[in-house]
Amino acid sequence: MSEILSVSKLNKSFGGVTVARDIDFALQAGTMHCLIGPNGAGKSSFFRLILGEHAPDSGTISFRETDITRMRSFERIRRGISVKFQVPGIFKALSVRQNLEVAFQHHLHGHNLATTVRRVLEFTNLESEVETAAGVLSHGQQQWLEIGMAVGVEPQLLLLDEPTAGMSPDETRKTGEMLHELNGRGITILAVEHDMAFVEQIATRVTVLHFGAIFAEGTIAEIIDHPGVQEIYLGTADE
């Protein structure tokens, strides 16, 4: 297996708050990997560093063997990274269709664009909401829309920040199925998640962040049995 993403000695602080502390991290291509950790552990910040929204104080980030540490965000995206943010990053005033069109139109045009939009609508169960303004969708539907925006032009790497937050158990299960299907198409997935049942449903490997540092890493069974992890995280998992 090859590494699709590798991070080495990554550091970042905001004033007194250290959000990344000597992070060394490797993501194997084709896997579904979960990132867990208590609130404020630095999970979202880690994503923002990968995406180039924050510049690291030191360290390097490589994506598919290319050093992307100094690259602008949009250039990283064009190399094959997609993201769904923790707070739904959809265009609320635009319709579901327009959201998808904007997401795909720099790769696809005309007929191809229309077909892809239709297929993604099917995939995300949003066919009946095509003309609805995205802002009035249910929370779960907004999350799906954003996943759809992120995967229509198939990325190599999909970053998902709490994809099931605010979802019903049924929606959560459906989301898990969606992710398995996307992974089956060859998309590597890195997801931040609080719901341990969901982590069990999707993840092959789990990394635990604590105070901006990697605290533990292993298979889901190893992490669940890890005494330190239970102490810092699982014991207080119900946020």
Binding site: I77, F85, G89, F91, K92, V102, A103, H106
Partner: peptide, 16 residues
């Protein structure tokens, strides 16, 4: 319009 609505998201869709 996407930039007006949410510039961060627009950049994260690959637009300069």
């Amino acid at each position: 319009v996407a930039i007006r609505e949410n510039p961060e998201r627009a950049e994260m869709l690959g637009y300069d």
